[in-house]
């Protein structure tokens, strides 16, 4: 079986991926309450049949946790170990996961961090990642 690291890109999630291709972070928002939410939904999870608007937000937030992979579950990830997965709150109550290339040099949870979209060889899609200088 081939190891393709390909997320589902379809009508529901395409606004996220279109923005990501341009390096921008766009999230679905409840049109009525203005609240951002994740993951994408065709109607607002906060209102019955509530309309959804995609809006760009700053790709930054509070780092809450990093889980560090010491074992690779796929061949294509083998050379990346150790790598981390970060949990970042990018809007009130909205948390996204991001790749952490160098977890040993990552800031402590509780820090404000910036996110970016990386284009590593192992992924066919942009990868939301912790910005590390």
């Amino acid at each position: 079986m081939s190891e393709r690291l390909t997320p589902v890109v379809n009508d529901l999630s395409r606004p996220f991926w279109d923005a990501a291709a341009e390096g921008r972070l766009s999230l679905p928002h409840c049109a009525e309450t203005g609240r951002a939410f994740w993951p994408p939904a065709p109607t607002s999870p906060f209102r019955a049949a509530g309309a959804v608007e995609w809006r760009e937000i700053e790709a930054a937030g509070m780092l809450l946790s990093i889980a560090v992979y010491r074992r690779a579950f796929q061949t294509v990830l083998k050379d990346l170990v150790p790598y981390g997965i970060a949990l970042v709150e990018v809007a009130p109550g909205v948390r996204l996961l991001g790749h952490v290339e160098n977890p040993d040099a990552a800031p402590e949870p509780g820090s404000r961090v910036s996110l970016c979209f990386a284009h590593p060889q192992w992924s066919e899609s942009p990868v939301l990642a912790l910005e590390q200088s």
């Binding site: 690291l5 589902v8 379809n10 889980a67 997965i85 996961l97 992924s123």
Partner: peptide, 25 residues
């Protein structure tokens, strides 16, 4: 790669490929 996240919070395309990562976090 399940739409809107794996059954244990996985997001395979960023390297969160296994159930244990959600348990660790």
């Amino acid at each position: 790669f399940r739409e809107n996240g794996g059954p244990h919070g996985e997001e395979g395309h960023i390297g969160m490929s296994s159930p244990i990562a959600g348990a660790a976090m």
